[in-house]
Amino acid sequence: MEHGSLTDESSSTFSLIDEDHTLANSVRFVLNQDPRVSFCGYSIPHPSDNNVNIRVQTTGDSAKDVLKDALNDLAGRCKHVQVTFDKSVTGFKATQSTNEMKVDE
């Protein structure tokens, strides 16, 4: 859910249900990397509530688009982590099995 104003779309608060620090903190990091963002932060109104508010203020662009870009960026990072991790694990398993073969000889 987005809480913003109709006249100025450069600042908004987004209220995400069923999310917590896990997503909000990661998104805040990515938003901080975006030069279009002039302010961003998040808060969890109450620890028993399962929602989080993310505040985004930009230098002019639509806050919603900037947040969407940040989420896309984060998703891209996840993909890259997965690919890199896969490569390292396969590499590690390969060297391990050759080492084992050497022991057997």
Partner: peptide, 24 residues
């Protein structure tokens, strides 16, 4: 453990996708 880590990364990816589609 290596499968668990990949699953975890996938969960974060899905979270992003979910919020993107909610914002659209």
């Amino acid at each position: 453990p290596e499968v668990l880590f990949k699953e975890a990364v996938e969960v974060l990816h899905e979270k992003c996708d979910r919020v993107i589609s909610e914002l659209s």
